[in-house]
Design a protein around this nucleic acid. Structure first.
Length: 528
RNA sequence: GGCCCCGUAGCUCAGGGGAUAGAGCGACCGCCUCCUAAGCGGUAGGUCACAGGUUCGAAUCCUGUCGGGGCCGCCA
């Protein structure tokens, strides 16, 4: 890296650096290797200092100031208020929540936000579906026409409508009942969604309503702003390349010049009949987010929204004058398996697996951890049997087990009359930690602060999950070394020595606890 | 036709300009009179899809090809 600007061969630079660095007391040796690598060996005391720092700082150890003063809005889930959340939403919810927690740990000021699509045609469909259930509640047979939502979850909504409105809405034209039923049903759906989220332990800071944004005139405001920049015009779109759709015809409509901000084609904001497209409220919503003063926006969307990313970025770029970056995190599909067989999910057949199904069977900890063991842009296999098995196929148990072992050590020590609070341990003479296996664990603990920053910078919470697995592995390894070599057990005859060893275990426990906290997983104190 | 994601060990996946490419599962060999063996140690297993290019150096960056998935007109 330095070779070019310095105009010297890499090895020469490395040797020069090595000479200087060996003078530092914290560095035991600095050796040049290979074509110009510099291997530094830190003193055991450096690693012991890490253990002490972890104990003193506790769950704040590794917290970064990297995002200081940066206000980030993380929008996630944003499921339509038309039914219960399913597996796909679950992954988005877990990812968004963990990403928000990660950014928070890295020092950002984070807002978790849910955008309620409560204004489009889909909520009218919901209202019509609920109305049929309302009729059903009155003993009439429901007519669930093609395109309506057939799910049983609307039956109680029909009952509730009956309780609220009695028979006042029966035998009336749609114009009379559509609005009140829509209001009522979307409120019910949002209630259900909030409960689903609560099952997963996800708590939003802000719920934004499409309806409210639309009603407040923000669409017109945002479009006017874009128009002021010369980015809105009346025009005709090019037909799509390739084979032309059967009924393609040219239509003049209002377009957004998204190509000026990196998109491939301009996008319609008004239909030819003058009403807004779906895109228009989204423009307004992002305008709203920008005007609330966020420094960075993150949208967590399903992978099927991939074709939508460029226009969203274009809008935010235009409306913020390039000030606010928008990152869109696409969440790939969750493939369900049962008995090793793919498990087909169909909304129409009513065989779709809900968030509730998953969480009630697997529990929130397993659900969250498993869904975070893959990068967001790779598809995820979710095998019910493996997940329910609660075996070592489940990395979450492996990590929790490590934490439980640490807790177990502390319990045993306390029973043996050794004071083992973190405050006491932090004052222990860590000079008793000298074995390479012990220092190896300390080194892994030392990686935590840097890992947090890397993961936050890349917006990749899965890195935390993989790191915790490695940390747990190092702890289990050291634990088992105690089977062969009694000197490596955490609890020793000598109380001072014990405290040093337990301090190391606790330091690992503290990091596991903090890491699991980011992932939203409970650090188990014992395994049952 | 265009756009997005993926292609790394038998399987599931990490790594995303630097050293001998890592882990889990599966296979094989070992480890409990001892802090929880739900654990640990070891062995075997790889032309990092392919072809070019950039670079002192490419699994990693660029271009193209092939394979898998997803998306693409006033549907939200």
């Amino acid at each position: 890296m330095l070779a070019k600007p310095a105009g010297q061969p890499p090895r020469a630079i490395a040797e020069a650096l090595a000479a200087r660095l060996t003078a530092d007391p914290r560095i035991v040796s600095a050796e040049v290797a290979g074509p110009g690598f510099l291997n530094l060996r830190l003193s055991p005391e450096s690693w012991r200092a890490i253990v002490r720092a972890a104990l003193v700082e506790g769950r704040d150890y590794g917290r970064s100031t990297m995002g200081r003063g940066v206000r980030v809005n993380v929008e996630f889930v944003s499921a339509n208020p038309t039914g219960p959340m399913h597996v796909g939403h679950t992954r988005g919810a877990v990812f968004g929540d963990a990403l928000a927690a990660l950014l928070d740990f890295a020092g950002h000021e984070v807002t978790r936000e849910y955008y309620i699509n409560d204004a489009g045609a889909q909520v009218d469909v919901l209202a019509r579906s609920a109305y049929e259930r309302y009729r059903e509640a009155h003993g009439l047979s429901p007519e669930i026409a093609e395109g309506l939502y057939p799910g049983d979850y609307l039956i109680p909504v029909g009952e509730a409508l009956k309780a609220k409105f009695g028979d006042a809405l029966l035998e009336r034209p749609e114009a009379d009942w559509l609005a009140p039923v829509r209001e009522f049903a979307t409120a019910e759906m949002m209630q259900m969604i909030r409960e689903d989220l609560a099952l997963l332990g996800v708590k939003m800071d802000v719920f934004s309503s499409e309806k409210a944004i639309t009603a407040s005139g923000k669409i017109e405001e945002a479009i006017a702003a874009l128009r002021g920049m010369g980015l809105i015009y009346e025009g005709v779109l090019e037909p799509p390349k390739g084979k032309l759709p059967e009924d393609w015809e040219e239509r003049e409509q209002t377009l957004f010049r998204s190509t000026a901000h990196g998109d491939d084609v301009d996008r319609p904001v008004r239909k030819s009949d003058g009403s807004w497209t779906y895109f228009a409220p989204d423009i307004a919503y992002h305008w709203d987010k920008v005007s609330r003063g966020f420094d960075q926006l993150i949208d967590v969307l399903g992978a099927d929204h991939g074709g939508y990313v460029k226009r969203l970025k274009a809008v935010v770029s235009a409306l913020s004058g390039g000030r606010v970056p928008l990152e869109v995190k696409l969440i790939q599909l969750v493939k369900l398996f049962k008995n090793g067989e793919p498990f087909k999910m169909s909304k129409r057949a009513g065989t779709f697996v809900t968030l509730r199904d998953v969480v009630e069977q697997a529990g929130p900890d397993v659900t969250r951890f498993v869904m975070l063991t893959r990068k967001n842009d790779a598809a995820l296999d979710f095998d019910f049997d493996k997940v329910l098995e609660q075996s070592k196929d489940n990395p979450v148990f492996y990590v929790q087990y490590a934490h439980a072992r640490v807790c177990s050590v502390v319990r045993k020590a306390t029973e043996a009359g050794i004071v083992a609070t973190d405050a006491t341990l932090a004052r222990a003479d860590l000079g008793h930690l000298a074995h390479e296996a012990e220092l190896a664990l300390a080194k892994k603990i030392a990686e935590w602060p840097r890992l947090v920053e890397i993961a936050a910078r890349g917006q990749e919470p899965h890195r935390v999950a993989f790191y915790l697995y490695e940390l747990a592995s190092d702890l289990h390894a050291l634990w088992n070394r105690g089977n062969e070599d009694a000197a490596l057990r955490f609890i020793q005859e000598d109380a001072d020595v014990s405290r040093a060893k337990i301090a190391l275990a606790r330091a690992a426990g503290v990091v596991i606890s903090a890491g699991l906290g980011i992932l939203g997983v409970t650090p188990a104190e014992e395994m049952r």
